[in-house]
């Protein structure tokens, strides 16, 4: 067992990186590793609780039929995956990034932090991966 520290920057619904990183973290937890996520800049909105699904007027589907994916649900899901697999999972939202975007209302699990917490995770984890936005 080892541990992965990941920094992500992309906001929800803007980049293919988001789905990939969720897939990667899910797999990492299932394979028996601990994970720490530092959500920097736009990624601080991934766990924003007021996110809401919507209908799809182009496809003619209702909100219920559309079941629009919400990144907050994925964040919650990763906490559940960690619990099921007995792994430690931390999600740190960059506090300054949260404040400037007004996205401080989160689903259960994430905590507020800053670069010093990322450095702390870097020092304590086996691997660190930075996934910057473009």
């Amino acid at each position: 067992m080892s541990s992965l520290n990941v920094l992500i920057m992309d906001p929800p619904y803007e980049s293919a990186n988001t789905a990939t990183v969720f897939r990667m973290i899910d797999s990492t937890l299932r394979k028996g590793h601990d994970v720490t996520v530092f959500a920097y800049e736009g990624a601080a909105a991934l766990s924003f609780k007021p996110q809401k699904g919507h209908p799809n007027p182009v496809k003619g589907t209702s909100e219920e039929e559309e079941k629009h994916p919400l990144s907050k649900d994925f964040v919650e899901g990763l906490f559940a995956t960690a619990r099921e697999n007995g792994r430690e999972f931390k999600w740190i939202n960059c506090g300054l990034c949260v404040d400037e975007r007004g996205v401080g209302d989160w689903v259960e699990g994430p905590v507020r932090g800053g670069p010093q917490h990322f450095v702390e995770a870097f020092n304590n984890c086996d691997k660190t991966l930075v996934i910057a936005t473009r």
Binding site: G114, P115, Q116, F118, V119, E120, F122
Partner: peptide, 8 residues
């Protein structure tokens, strides 16, 4: 972020 981490 680089400078903040260096300071940390």
């Amino acid at each position: 972020f680089t400078r903040a981490c260096k300071n940390a």
